[in-house]
């Protein structure tokens, strides 16, 4: 097991390193940002002064090391446009993103897993078919389209729910739903497949042969075994939720980090962008590691083979 985790850790570190390089290159190879910042043009002296100030005249690898140093200190630079510290910009907006994302994930887990599990246990029933159709629809359609649809339906046609911003609890409903629906669908589909696969394993029939009740067989021998591959999926879905929140924030005009990220791309505000990439990658890598750790707990076969 140690070998397994060591390899994972190494890969995580290496991935973060690659991401750091990409973030750094994004910063530096975006050309001089001065064109965007000073559209009126600069005098040569002013430009030279700025270059020195931003240390753009040093060799690349020195710049990279400097960059690593600043990152280690938590200094991610300033927005090219608003001059705000990048860290502050993100910190101010992280809460709504986390709230909506977290709620959506919880909803997805608590609905998706039972949905998938029950439809696997009740093969051939009407309920199974309905569940699978719902999952099918939710899975195929992208986040932003779901958002638009929900807005049209609940926001304007029935005028039940607010569609912009996060001023009240009711404001959370549509964004969380939009983010959750595809995730519920993905989890339900996957869980069903994993359960069906688990059911066909010989030890399940053997468990039944021991005289265990069907319920016990379902929980201890089918569900338990299906959670193993589910872990991997959850890791991916968490990344998917982070992805999706960018779209959801755009659709519902939420004051989260997705907005500033997209804005940064449009405005070529690279310091803001590079932090987004770093933070996102760090989250994904961290989650991957946690999932791998949980995996070794869930599946004993992994522990020994390392």
């Amino acid at each position: 097991m140690l070998q397994f985790m060591a390899y994972r850790l190494l890969r995580a570190v290496f991935t973060m390193f690659v991401v750091l390089i990409i973030a750094f290159l994004t910063l530096r190879f975006s050309g001089t940002p001065f064109d965007a910042m000073f559209p009126e043009g600069l005098t040569v002296e002013a430009e030279q002064a700025l270059i020195e100030h931003w240390q753009l005249d040093l060799p690349l690898h020195r710049q990279f090391l400097n960059y690593l140093g600043t990152v280690a200190q938590g200094d991610f630079g300033q927005s090219l446009f608003t001059r705000e510290r990048v860290w502050d910009m993100y910190a101010a907006r992280i809460a709504p993103t986390l709230a909506v994302g977290g709620l959506a994930l919880l909803l997805a887990i608590f609905i998706g897993i039972p949905l998938g599990a029950l439809s696997a246990l009740a093969r051939g029933s009407a309920a199974e078919r309905v569940a699978m159709w719902v999952a099918f629809l939710g899975y195929a359609v992208p986040h932003f389209v779901i958002g638009i649809g929900l807005i049209l339906l609940f926001g304007y046609h029935w005028r039940m729910l607010p569609t912009t911003g996060l001023d009240s609890v009711r404001h959370y409903i549509l964004p969380v739903l939009t983010l959750a629906i595809p995730t519920v669908a993905a989890i339900a589909r996957f869980m069903r497949a994993a359960m069906i696969d688990a059911i066909s394993q010989p030890h399940v029939t053997a468990a039944l042969a021991k005289g265990l009740s069907r319920r016990k067989v379902a929980t201890d021998h089918v569900l338990r075994n299906a959670t193993v591959p589910l872990l991997t999926l959850l890791g991916l879905e968490i990344a998917g939720v982070v992805n999706g929140s960018i779209f959801v924030e755009a659709v519902f005009s939420l004051p989260g980090v997705g907005r500033i990220l997209v804005g940064a791309v449009q405005d070529r505000d690279f310091p803001v962008l590079q932090f987004g990439v770093l933070a996102y990658a760090a989250i994904v890598v961290l989650i991957s590691l946690v999932i791998d750790l949980l995996y070794t707990l869930a599946d004993p076969r992994v522990r020994v083979e390392g």
Partner: peptide, 27 residues
């Protein structure tokens, strides 16, 4: 079915053919 489960548990025990994979790998 529920009574049959009792029979399987107490009266008639079966050792299945794929006994080598009749054990749950995670327990």
């Amino acid at each position: 079915e529920t009574r049959l489960a009792g029979v399987r548990a107490r009266a008639v025990a079966m050792i299945a053919q794929e006994s080598l994979s009749g054990l749950n790998p995670v327990w």
